[in-house]
């Protein structure tokens, strides 16, 4: 119970401190530059000053945190990548050279590319199919809710769930993993799925597809509903078949949303490491960049230089998406 009480007190203090800052700083500003009971010119001048200062009071904590937790680390990682394992001695491009000669890196890079192609494609594909079909049946919302559910499950929890499905029992023992049980039922030989070279990657990817399809489905479903009924009715009058309507009328109209879904999942794929860590820890040819970086950071005392290099590679992979995002956001702002 003592632990609970301490937890509760720390929680409350943390939240109060944050709220206190906003109240306090704004009250302070208003009392230094009052806007009541003063001559009009003074009030006008004070209000102008207040209006110039206040945005920074509002933004202050956010900016500080963003700079410290995201911006500064990017710069610092870039610098660290030129230093040795403790981050003290300068080693030039040694880490980069090591990286591109390391077989493990090539393997994880290849795997990452596979993930990047397979997971967004399958998630978006299933998401689109399910969104389309659930929109036309009466229990669609229940179906959606159930398919969306894995979103709430942690990667590590999902890994256990799926590890249980891939579970292998040797010899004549009864299989308790669903997949092997099915294989045996249809007369096949049970397999240790997560150890089959190359194909095991796909068994890991399925987990992320399982999680992300719900996300794609929800967003695409909203986009599909946003399509004006008139365009579909017009297509029906023009004699288009169901599939033609879907591919030539509906899909083109939600192309923008599909792109957003795709890129969001892509970014997630680049960051994902929990699944690999929990399922195989990169063994049997399933290493990916994020997990490789994690293991260089902690295992065997850690090597800051090398893991920084891997982090930079991940960063480099998201830069195009970042530029595209910023461009979109800017275009949108100008449209306002």
């Amino acid at each position: 119970m003592g632990q609970l009480a301490i937890a509760f007190v720390t929680m409350t203090l943390g939240v109060l401190a944050c709220a206190g800052y906003f109240y306090g700083s704004n009250a302070l500003l208003d009392s230094i530059f009052p806007s009541k009971n003063r001559p009009a010119e003074v009030i006008a001048r004070n209000l102008r000053i207040v209006n110039q200062v206040r945005p920074w009071l509002f933004l202050g904590p956010a900016l500080l945190l963003l700079v410290f937790y995201l911006f500064y680390p990017v710069v610092q990682s870039a610098i660290l990548s030129f230093y040795g394992r403790t981050g003290e001695e300068f080693v030039g491009f040694a880490n980069y050279i090591w990286l591109f000669q390391s077989g493990e890196f090539l393997e994880s890079f290849r795997n990452n590319m596979l993930w990047l192609i397979v997971v967004p494609t399958l998630s978006t594909f299933f998401g689109l199919i399910i969104a389309t079909m659930t929109d036309r049946i009466w229990w669609g919302n229940i179906a959606k809710s159930l398919i969306f559910m894995p979103m709430a499950i942690s990667f590590i929890g999902a890994s256990i769930i799926w590890k249980f499905i891939y579970e292998y029992r040797s010899g004549g023992d009864e299989q308790i993993g669903l997949l092997n049980a099915l294989v045996v039922f249809f007369g096949g030989e049970p397999q240790t799925w997560i150890q089959i070279p190359f194909w095991n990657n796909f068994f890991l990817m399925i987990i992320l597809v399982w999680i992300q399809t719900g996300f794609a489905m929800v967003i695409l479903s909203a986009a599909l509903r946003g399509i004006p009924d008139e365009t579909i009715e017009a297509a029906v009058l023009d004699g288009a078949s169901g599939l033609q309507i879907f591919f030539r009328i509906m899909v083109p109209q939600i192309w923008g949303t599909i792109a957003v879904v795709w890129t969001t999942i892509t970014i997630l794929v680049l960051k994902v490491f929990d699944i690999v860590l929990a399922m195989t820890n990169g063994q049997w040819g399933t290493q990916v960049l994020a997990n490789q970086m994690f293991s260089w950071l902690f295992q065997g005392g850690g090597d800051y230089g090398r893991s920084a290099v891997i982090a930079l590679v991940i960063m480099a992979l998201v830069v195009p998406i970042m530029v595209w995002n910023i461009k979109n956001a800017n275009a949108e702002m100008e449209g306002r």
């Binding site: 900016l63 963003l66 937790y69 680390p73 610092q76 981050g87 680049l270 991940i314 960063m315 970042m322």
Partner: peptide, 22 residues
């Protein structure tokens, strides 16, 4: 600033770990 926030949206967490630990 808005552009900055959108940019930071995609920064992989992994980038931050080493510098922040230090």
């Amino acid at each position: 600033l808005i552009a900055g926030v959108v940019g930071l949206l995609v920064v992989p967490l992994q980038m931050s770990l080493i510098p922040l630990l230090t």
